[in-house]
Design a protein around this nucleic acid. Structure first.
Lengths: 132, 132, 132, 132
DNA sequence: GTGGTCTAGACCACA
DNA sequence: GTGGTCTAGACCACA
């Protein structure tokens, strides 16, 4: 499993980790029950502090993406919706607004943003993936 | 010029200001050469710390949206994109991919994501030709 | 606002803090919008590390009990159910099972446990409190 | 004697073992003087580390549920409560109050909490006189 | 002043 | 070996 950290990024390190794992799970590159690297191992690989990895994993646990097993490690959790419809929408809007805000800064028009989203959706979630 | 601050918002105040000015410029409600309120005036109107307004303006200057004229104030700058086309696209994709991953974690389908993006775009970037 | 830490407790310090604040909110001793002590202040009062207080507050934020405002502090959030019915039940069962497991260790019978729960419910949530 | 381990459980394995033995004793399925399986045997049966069983037994000895007889094994001890009546009640209240606070945070009513406790008690402590 | 992130490192619980 | 908690302390972002 490959995780990369961008040194100069405005995004915090722990957030970069959790986002990448979220993506691996979302795109089925990590399946339910799969182990993720141990806190210490990933910290060593990325040359960062174990606490930072632990923070990323803790975030994923509270969002129901991972679960920890005492003394064994972290594993991809069974996908279950733990949030209410309105909370899910609130979180979706938060994520979309952030992307739109960045797109505006980059001078893209609404049409360009929508079109590009279509492309990314097809790339991240190829239709075959949806048939399952 | 109307700027609104949402008190309880998770977004920082300075970011709310800079985003709103970006939108006013993007939608031509503020044209090249137009003045924006002085730092002190806007701070007074919004009942916030002048430092916060100064920070927003500084960011807009850095991104080429505004320019300051010593002793006169801040004005809308001629548009110039600081990034190359491919660099802009790369950054856009990065922002969209992050939003999509979170949306998938939240169990939304591609169609739901696209639809919701439309809604947010209309909310954040209302059509220019709208009768106000 | 009084928070107390039991030194020899098997419960972690951050958990003691979050539980006590949860209780203050649950019993309306802290109302929506009220500020809680700043991370640094509470850490100083309790003679513990600020990170430990921050961890407790972060837990309460993700459970929707508190919200943080950039540079201002933490405040009691408007009560909103962010979890699905089944997730709420799962969490309730988890809390009840822990209590029952401790009660069993203490040699109480099921009847004694139920009776005592009634008493505590009346103590923590006097009927007048429910009429509102 | 039947002990079951739930692999994905948030509860530690040693705690699952000690809780189940406590219940067997509490419900007289194990009587004073009865032997429990040897550490090695139970570890083999459950396919877990013997250290884990040893830890569970050690806790039960410490709490006066079991006693070890050198070279013979572990046996159910005569019941003796190590805590005074008021100390037991204080600890029970503490456990219940914590559960209640969390339940209130989750927006459950007192009635819902009591009802659910009944269900959990029946699940965790099935009536002794049940036909198995 | 406020909170947020990160490091270095200790010590404990569990398998 | 695994994760969990806590400290001490630095440095940054924001009001």
């Amino acid at each position: 499993m490959q995780i990369h950290i961008a040194a100069g990024s405005p995004q915090s390190i722990y957030r970069q980790i959790s986002d990448q794992i979220r993506r691996l799970v979302a795109t089925n590159k990590l399946a339910v029950g799969d182990a993720v690297p141990s806190v210490r191992q990933l910290a060593k690989d990325l040359v960062i502090n174990p606490n930072t990895v632990a923070k990323a994993y803790a975030e994923l646990v509270r969002d129901g993406v991972l679960e920890s097993q005492q003394g064994r490690g972290y594993f991809v959790a069974r996908r279950k919706s733990i949030f209410t419809k309105s909370e899910r929408l609130r979180r979706l809007d938060e994520a979309l607004d952030l992307a739109v805000s960045q797109a505006i800064t980059l001078d893209f028009t609404p049409d360009e943003i929508s079109e590009r989203l279509q492309l990314r959706l097809e790339k991240l979630l190829p239709p075959v993936h949806r048939t399952e």
